[in-house]
Design a protein around this nucleic acid. Sequence first.
DNA 1: GGTCATGGCGTTATCTTATTACATCGCCGG
DNA 2: CCGGCGATGTAATAAGATAACGCCATGACC
Lengths: 168, 168
Amino acid sequence: MTVDPHSTAGPASRHGHDHAHCIADALTRADALCAERGARLTALRRQVLELVWNSHKPRGAYAILEDLSQREGKATAPLTVYRALEFLVEHGLVHRIESLNAYIGCAAPGAVHSGQFLVCETCGNAVEIDDPRIRAAIGTIAAEHGFQVSRPTVEVRGTCTDCQEKTP
Amino acid sequence: MTVDPHSTAGPASRHGHDHAHCIADALTRADALCAERGARLTALRRQVLELVWNSHKPRGAYAILEDLSQREGKATAPLTVYRALEFLVEHGLVHRIESLNAYIGCAAPGAVHSGQFLVCETCGNAVEIDDPRIRAAIGTIAAEHGFQVSRPTVEVRGTCTDCQEKTP
DNA sequence: GGTCATGGCGTTATCTTATTACATCGCCGG
DNA sequence: CCGGCGATGTAATAAGATAACGCCATGACC
Ligand SMILES: [Zn+2]
Ligand SMILES: [Zn+2]
Ligand SMILES: [Zn+2]
Ligand SMILES: [Zn+2]
């Protein structure tokens, strides 16, 4: 297990950014979005969302489960977490990273976007981007194939800037 | 279980295309590629490759395992299949569809390409494309983020032409 | 031909991820 | 108060993947 300055750490973890603010912000937006839609962001779901946001790394369902169990002080069943995640994904508050079987908080919930990720193989951080050029390219090519797109998945593995600097 | 005119069917299954030819072709190219590289395409690996090519749908490792066990007439261990798949993926003969935890034969082994797929949610077929525009777009955007790409994953879910026609 | 190193394969156990089936709880309109 | 419905709890199990260990076939080398 490697040291992770970002996982359950306090504020100002990554590059001096105040991660507590990230979390608070995400929760506020989630509250607003759900209220607006009449969706029920229950205590449990909110809790899971917060745990997903605990870092900028995609987290596995069972990792979240452990956190949840620990925080609740009692064992929780996998299904509990999966159900919460299902809700969060449906409402665009969380994305699933297919190539990692893991989940990460959405950077821009509410906005229409397709979910594109740059996943660093070294540090594990994943950055969500939503570049119209990629969306457009996929749309064009799909159209050329007569293919009707419902859900594009773009997950780019590689090395992030920081990790490149560390190992030149 | 839905009817699948393409799974283990004989020749001329899909749209009159001679799938037996697809398989034979894939095996021939695999033989050539491995010979060229000094890689050992053993009987087992060749068998697994053939089973992967049994349809144009991505197949799960355990589905392949069942086929293999049946064909061999004796039970086979999961690891056997996973090892063969690992070899095939490493040599670019097979791709893994992350969003399905499944494997599919490569349409253009040997050629440099990144692996982009149009996956139909109705019929399950997956078509491999390799459009330079998508590759370029990803490359550009990654560069803008200072991100060094090692393995891009593009898996587009949606509905293929045929399935659109069937349900207008 | 004999010997040895390598890599492929078999066997078993185990791990991670995800889902199915069924019971219960709590809120809310009628 | 009551019926209905969505959320949660509990238990069991499916599906996907890997770890640890050892045997055996292949082929280089002597
Ligand atoms: Zn998002
Ligand atoms: Zn990194
Ligand atoms: Zn390919
Ligand atoms: Zn289709």
